[in-house]
Structures are given as C-alpha cells and as structure tokens.
Simulated assay, not measured.
Amino acid sequence: MKSALLCIDLQHLCAVRGEGIFSEGQSCPFSPEEQNYFFDRLEKQVLPNVQKLQAIFRDKGIEVLHIRTRTKTRDGRERTFWQKRAGLLATPGSRESEFIDSVMPRGDELIVNKTGSGPFGNTNLHALLVQLDVQQLYCCGVHTNTSIESTIRAAADYGYCPVLIPDATAAASQALQDNCVERLVGQCCEEIETNKLVEDFKHHLRSVG
C-alpha cells in the first residue's frame, strides 16, 4: 500500500507553551500539572520523533502532509459548533496558525487546513489522498485524544489503513494518552513506535538500493 505521514496540529494554536489554547487566563482548559506533563512529553519525545519520521519519509520519497486548524474566514464563522464553544480560532496569517519551526513543511509538501477536530468531512483531504493513491496513513502530532483520534476513526471509516505512532503523539496526561491508545489500536488502527518504523524503512531502503 502507498503510504503518507500525517503531521497533525503541530502549530502555535495547539502545541506551544503560553500560546493558543495554552494562553494564560481563565479560558485555558489545562491545569498547570497537565501543561507541565504535555510540554515535557512534547519537547523531549514527540517533536524529536516527528523530526525523525519526517526525515525518513522525505528520504524515502513518501508524502508528508501537514494538517492544521485554520479557518478560511477572518472571523472563523465556518468553524464547527464545538470549535467555537472551545474558543479555538486560528485565522489566515495569524500566529496561532503558524507551524512549529522544527517540524514545519518543506518544499511543496501539502498543507490541509481544517475547521473541525479531524480533517475528514471539512477539507479536501480525502480527495487529495485518492489523487495520491494513498491507502495507509501514519499519524503523529497532537492531541492524541482529540484531533488524532478523530482523524484515525474517520480515516478507518473512509476505508484507509491508519497507523498510530504513540510515541510521536501527546495528550494532556498519561491516562488520556493510554486510554486513547487502548481505544484505538486493534479497533480502527494499528500502532508502531518511531524507532521501529524508521528501522523498517531503513532496512527496506537497503534491500532495494
């Protein structure tokens, strides 16, 4: 099966300390303990692993797609009810819509802008994947129990073969992370750790080189 790497919500809205959903104030939905856990995991494990994944996929010539939360309009009126309720807003050209520098798109890698938790149903992702003849989707990014889970469940329903990379994803607590992985794996996706996937690809490169 032809594959692609989906890098999900690795942007200032969702994954940068003190910005977006982590901005200081009463509207922040995460406790200090949850933020400390999330950013410790993100900075020490997830972002380095996403960098490894992007590097091997690029070296292999496999599509790397970047999925982010970003509206088409300046007031975000086309967002879902739940995004509006949660105060999720990343408009064109905004700081919130920018990718994290260390894992940002390169060259002409495709960018998909979504206005819901997952990209299926509110973007052209399905059409793009059909055009690219992609059937297997390796998923990394944040947050495991929201955008990642929504993407994987919808992908499975659309007939794709999703693969979760647990150590390249993060949620606000270890319990949320573990519970989500348990819900998904074996039900609507497979799983593989970053180093195992990288080694598999390196072996394949050697065997065909």
Rank of each mutant, 00 (worst) to 15 (best):
S3Y: 06
S3R: 10
S3V: 09
L5E: 01
L6T: 03
L6H: 02
C7N: 10
I8M: 14
D9L: 06
D9P: 06
L10F: 14
L10E: 08
L10G: 05
Q11H: 12
Q11R: 04
H12F: 15
H12T: 12
L13Q: 04
V16D: 13
R17S: 15
E19C: 11
G20K: 02
I21R: 11
I21Y: 10
I21A: 08
F22A: 02
S23Y: 03
E24W: 00
E24G: 00
E24N: 03
G25C: 07
Q26I: 05
S27V: 05
C28Y: 06
C28T: 04
C28H: 07
C28A: 09
C28L: 10
P29H: 06
F30S: 03
S31K: 14
P32T: 03
P32R: 05
P32Y: 04
E33I: 00
E33H: 00
E34Q: 14
E34G: 05
E34A: 12
Q35A: 11
Q35T: 10
N36T: 10
N36V: 07
N36S: 11
F38G: 01
F38Y: 13
F38M: 11
F38E: 05
F39T: 03
F39L: 06
D40A: 09
D40I: 04
R41D: 08
R41K: 14
R41T: 11
L42M: 07
L42Y: 03
L42E: 02
L42A: 01
E43N: 14
E43V: 09
K44A: 12
Q45S: 13
Q45G: 07
V46K: 00
V46I: 12
V46G: 01
V46W: 00
L47K: 02
N49E: 04
V50H: 01
V50K: 02
V50A: 03
V50P: 00
V50F: 01
Q51F: 02
K52Q: 00
L53Y: 03
L53M: 08
Q54A: 11
A55T: 06
I56H: 09
F57S: 01
D59L: 13
D59S: 12
D59W: 10
K60Q: 10
K60V: 04
K60F: 06
G61S: 09
G61F: 08
I62F: 09
I62H: 09
V64P: 02
V64D: 03
V64C: 06
V64I: 12
L65C: 08
L65F: 13
L65Q: 03
L65H: 02
H66A: 06
H66N: 08
I67D: 02
I67F: 08
R68P: 09
R68Q: 13
R68E: 13
R68H: 13
T69M: 15
T71P: 14
K72E: 11
T73Q: 14
T73S: 15
R74Q: 15
R74P: 15
D75R: 15
D75L: 15
D75E: 15
G76Q: 08
G76R: 05
G76H: 07
G76I: 13
G76L: 14
G76A: 10
G76D: 15
